[in-house]
Design a protein around this nucleic acid. Structure first.
Length: 458
RNA sequence: GUGGUUGUAGCUCAGUUGGUUAGAGCGCCAGAUUGUGGAUCUGGAGGUCGCCGGUUCGAACCCGGUCUUCCACCCCA
């Protein structure tokens, strides 16, 4: 007896139907990326821990999968730490590699390492899996794909505007209604500064990021728990709770933040970005949301988050500007901005909303019935001709009874069946059956490719 | 990482206070129909009751552990 095989928690197999649908998502995303001139790269699944650690905050470090050193990984462990059961020191000594946690940090590493080959501003996209040792839930996996687009080496806010445009195009092509929220870390810094707690910006942003989820009172409690003085909270609240259009919020903010250099800079950037967005022929609707903070602590300017309008599902796309991510790897002064599409969540949203086009269920366009040895040369000839014409066909591999071959076509959702037995072959024809309508037509062999192609369209 | 939750046929789920051979629907296979799928009818196959251990004369059912699912916190795509 074998034990039933299984896969690690939070990982998944993708079967053909799922893959065809996933590829449909990837194709839309990839096409829109390259439409704006972004170039593809890939980086290794594993990175040195020195590259990964310290970039995502304390929580992020905990969620990085670590890879045990090869060979006798205990050889270098000092006996003291082992007997003290000090897991953090031991792990430093037995593991020096980890699975990548996102695509942005490996990209920054890549840019630094390849700076000689790169022409700036560098626009790249990257579609690869990432791994997080999180506890899985619905829409939250331990292995999932991110689709990143970034521009590095350009301060222009035109890049932000273009990314919003890409977001808009991708999701409208996928038929997902979205809410795009933007904010700016400099504005958040300004708010913290004006409230008299510039040092505690991280605690403040993490707390106000939860506004939508836990409400005003919840945020107040969260701030107190994080040790923010009550007079600071009192000054924060009116700002966080600003309402009205993005423009109105910005006007109000200007007044409040007259004394904060960072804050004013943030407002200026936001106004510039909104101005660019208004210039776009197709105007994406974005909303300035002062409660949007985002956890990753390398963001320094614009931050963007996208949610599905029809489903509460967490964010399906997010990103922002990072002014000095490459600085950590020894290349300071290079600013970048990018967003990441969460393919797996997009898939889940589309599945729930029933948004996948029907044809993503199958890829074969025609099945050729196998009649046996006599007819085989002709059937193989037909298959070859159709494939030359760019039509995806299968020749059933065994000459079993027709019922079985037709059921196969039915189960596989193959739209056309080519029937060429001795009768048809004798007259230089084949019978083509449309599986949807049940209609059968006799077609001269030479006309077969065009007939099937037309049938595909109808 | 903390707390909770779920697990019975390929799928969706029944399963009485622990009591003999664990059921249904759908799907699958075969036949009715030896050149025709989706409808109908007939028959059939398919289950270590997630896994390991314990309690018991006896466990799908009770207890412990473990894995998995989902939920909340945390965080995030």
């Amino acid at each position: 007896m074998f034990q039933k095989p299984s896969i690690p928690r939070g990982t998944r197999d993708f079967s053909p139907t799922e893959m065809l649908r996933r590829n449909y998502i990837f194709d839309v995303i990839r096409r829109n990326f390259s439409l704006c001139g972004y170039l593809p790269i890939e980086t290794p699944a594993m990175e040195n821990l020195s590259t990964l650690l310290g970039k995502y905050g304390e929580e992020g470090d905990r969620l990085i999968f670590r890879i045990l050193n090869s060979g006798n990984f205990l050889a270098g462990v000092t006996p003291g730490t082992l007997s003290a059961a000090d897991s953090s020191s031991v792990s430093q000594q037995i593991s020096e590699k980890g699975l990548r946690y996102d695509l942005t940090v490996p990209f920054a590493r890549y840019v630094v390492q390849h700076r000689d080959e790169i022409t700036f501003p560098f626009r790249r996209y990257q579609i690869q899996p990432v791994w997080r040792a999180d506890k899985p839930q619905k829409g939250r996996y331990r292995e999932f794909f991110q689709c990143d687009v970034d521009v590095i080496g350009s301060d222009s806010l035109l890049n932000e505007a273009e990314l919003v445009q890409i977001i808009d195009r991708v999701f409208s092509e996928l038929n997902i209604k979205i809410i795009v929220k933007i904010n700016n870390r400099k504005i958040l810094a300004g708010i913290a500064e004006m409230a008299g707690a510039g040092e505690q910006i991280t605690d403040i942003t993490v707390a106000i990021d939860k506004l939508e989820k836990i409400g005003r009172d919840g945020v107040r409690q969260e701030l107190m728990q994080r040790g923010i003085a009550s007079e600071v909270i009192a000054r924060l609240e009116p700002v966080i709770n600003l309402s009205g259009s993005s423009e109105e919020k910005l006007e109000e903010l200007k007044r409040v933040m007259a004394g904060s250099e960072a804050g004013l800079k943030g407002i200026e950037e936001m106004e510039e970005l909104l101005g660019y967005l208004a210039m776009q022929p197709v105007k994406p609707s974005v909303e300035l949301d002062l409660s949007l903070a985002r956890g990753l602590n390398y963001y320094t300017g614009t931050i963007i988050e996208v949610k599905a309008a029809d489903l509460p599902f967490g964010s399906i796309c997010g990103g922002g500007r990072y002014d000095d991510l490459t600085g950590i790897f020894g290349l300071p002064g290079v600013s970048g901005v990018g967003v990441s599409f969460g393919a797996d969540r997009i898939y889940d949203v589309m599945l729930r909303l029933n948004l996948f086009p029907e044809q993503t269920g199958s890829s074969t366009e025609a099945l050729i019935i196998n009649f046996g040895r006599e007819e085989l040369p002709t059937l193989m000839q037909i298959a070859d001709t159709l494939r030359e014409a760019g039509i995806a066909v299968e020749l059933y591999p065994e000459s079993v009874k027709l019922k079985k071959q037709f059921s196969y076509a039915d189960a596989r959702m193959i739209p056309m069946v080519v029937i060429a037995g001795s009768n048809e072959i004798a007259s230089g024809q084949a019978t083509v059956k449309n599986m949807k309508t049940g209609e059968q037509t006799a077609v001269i062999l030479s006309a077969l490719p065009s007939f099937i192609r037309e049938g595909k369209l109808s």
